[in-house]
Every structure is written in C-alpha cells, then in structure tokens.
Simulated assay, not measured.
Amino acid sequence: MRIDLNSDLGEGFGPYTIADDAGIMQVITSANLACGYHAGDPVIMDRMVGLAKAAGVDIGAHVGYPDRMGFGRRAMAMDLDELEKHVLYQLGALEGLARPHGRKISHMNPHGALGNLACVDRSVADALVRATSAFDPDIAYLVLSGTELETAARAAGRRTINLFLADRAYLANGQLAPRSLPGAVIKDHKASAERILRLLDDGTLETIDGQVLRIAVQSILVHSDTPGALEMAHSIRRAITDAGGAITPLSQMLS
C-alpha cells in the first residue's frame, strides 16, 4: 500500500507566517504551494521550492481566487475564460520560480472556494482542466473522490490522485463539511489517525452526521494552518507506516 502525504504550504505573505512550513516539509512527500493569489508571494514561493527540493518533496500548484483578504475561502463571480487565465497565471508564476531550482510542477490542487466549486460545478472543473492541460498536460490533479473535478480530469485523459483531507469532516454526499459547522475541522491528531486507518482498512469513513461513506484514497492532506498540524502529520505518518503502508511521493505513484 503506497500513500502520499501532502500539505498546503507557503500560505504566508511578506514577513507573516501561519504555519511551520519548514517542519511540515520534513514529514510530507508532496507540497501544494500557494501561488500568490490567496496567499504567498515570490520570495515565499522560492523558499518553499528550495525547501521541497532539499527534502525530496514533490511540488504542486495550489491555485485559488485572487483574494488574500479572505484567504481564498470566499466565492468570486468570474466567467470561465477569465478563470482559465487566472489559473494559467498562477501556474506560470510557480513554474518560473521552480525552474531555477531544477524542479517542475507535478500536480495541482485548487484551494478553498475555488476547489469547493470545482467539486460540484462541471463547467468550472472543465475550465481548471483546460487551463492546466494547456500549460502542461503531464500535471496530475488532486481530486476528492466522486467529484466533478475528478470526472472532468478523467474525461480529458488526465491523471488523477484521490485525495482525503485528514483534518476535515465530510458530508454524506462526499463533499467537505462547511467550516461553519461544529466539528467540521478535526484538531485531534489521534482521532484523525484513527479515521485514516479505518479508511485504509475498509475504504469507509463516518460522516459528520454519522452515516458511512465509501471513498477512494491515494493521498492524504493535512492543512498547515490547522492547530497542531505538524504533530498531526507525524501521527498520520506513523499510523500509516505501522500499518504496513509506504509513504510515497506523487511522482513515484504516477510513474
């Protein structure tokens, strides 16, 4: 059993940081790097690529709406052509900073409100796939199981990796529980590890309302801004390896 462990990193701005990026980078195998829209800036992005290179961690583009004030968690009205250009812009920014380090973007993972919309709106999912495919058709997509983004990427013949969010509760329809709901963000790293072991054992998950959901998983994400994220990442990694799993970067899983 091979499982990727990843995190959203580089989500500070200027002198401000919200997570122990350097610490988390030593635990994960793939990093989703903010591309300057919901968070991040050129200096932070360059530093993250350097940290990822030193740690042997794959880099992905964490694209989102241009909304630093709302951390990309607020929906924005944007026509599909405009959205494609914004995605291309972010991919180009990260690639431009990665190239001097000899690195390439291995995957993309839409952030926040954009990611939530791409899960349920096929036209938005198609726009993300068109933009990313135009930039580099070899880029894989981190997707939630059973979503429109998964369907759109596969319909275009692109590679997908099924993602499970370790620190978020799920609804019965397979979507993430809104952060406004009590219990939507899981901060107990032991509870998170137990959920993951159940998921890897029988492919099921208990939803926020007590139902049983069956989902596929190849990559597990820990949000870097969740309290105790570093400890949670260590706990999850130990649980997977103790269960006989191999923590494996996305690039190796896709090769």
Rank of each mutant, 00 (worst) to 15 (best):
D126L: 10
D188K: 05
A113Q: 06
S235K: 15
R154L: 15
R237W: 12
I240C: 03
I59F: 03
K85C: 15
V222W: 06
D58A: 10
T29A: 10
T248N: 14
F164V: 13
G102Y: 02
H189L: 03
R154K: 15
D202S: 01
T151G: 00
L165W: 04
F164H: 13
R2P: 09
M69S: 09
L176H: 07
S145I: 01
T132Y: 02
A22Q: 10
E194K: 14
R154D: 08
A233C: 11
V87Y: 03
G112S: 09
V143W: 00
R238D: 12
G40C: 11
T248A: 12
V124M: 13
I18L: 13
V185T: 12
M253H: 05
P227Q: 07
P15T: 12
P137K: 02
Y16A: 12
G60H: 12
L199T: 10
R214Q: 11
L88D: 13
I105K: 09
T29H: 06
A52I: 04
N162Q: 10
P182C: 05
L114T: 07
S192F: 00
V57E: 08
P137I: 08
N109S: 15
T204W: 03
A243G: 03
A52G: 11
D20M: 07
R214M: 00
S180Q: 01
H107S: 12
Q26W: 04
S219Q: 03
N6V: 04
G174Y: 11
K104H: 10
D67V: 11
T147P: 00
A131E: 04
G56R: 10
L144Y: 00
A193W: 07
A39E: 08
G36R: 04
T241D: 08
I196E: 01
A177W: 04
R2K: 15
Y37L: 09
G245H: 12
T160Y: 01
A131N: 01
T204N: 01
S123L: 09
A61E: 05
L91I: 11
G245P: 09
S106D: 04
Q211F: 05
D58E: 08
L83C: 11
R73C: 10
I215V: 15
A216D: 11
S180V: 07
A134I: 02
L199M: 10
A184P: 08
A52Y: 00
L117R: 14
L91E: 01
A61T: 09
R47N: 13
P137F: 06
A229L: 07
P178D: 00
H111T: 05
Y141N: 02
A155K: 13
G70A: 15
V129W: 04
L205P: 00
I28D: 01
A229N: 07
T132G: 05
T204P: 06
L33A: 05
Y170V: 06
A52C: 13
T207R: 04
A55K: 03
L142C: 06
P15F: 09
P227N: 05
T132E: 01
V212S: 11
S30I: 08
N173H: 05
A131F: 07
A118G: 15
K53H: 06
T160I: 15
D209F: 05
G10M: 09
R73L: 11
N116C: 07
V57F: 09
A52P: 08
L128T: 02
S192C: 15
V63N: 01
R122I: 11
A239S: 11
A191E: 15
A193R: 03
T160C: 14
Y89R: 14
A125C: 02
D242M: 13
D121Q: 10
L171Q: 14
F164M: 14
F13M: 06
L197T: 11
A118W: 04
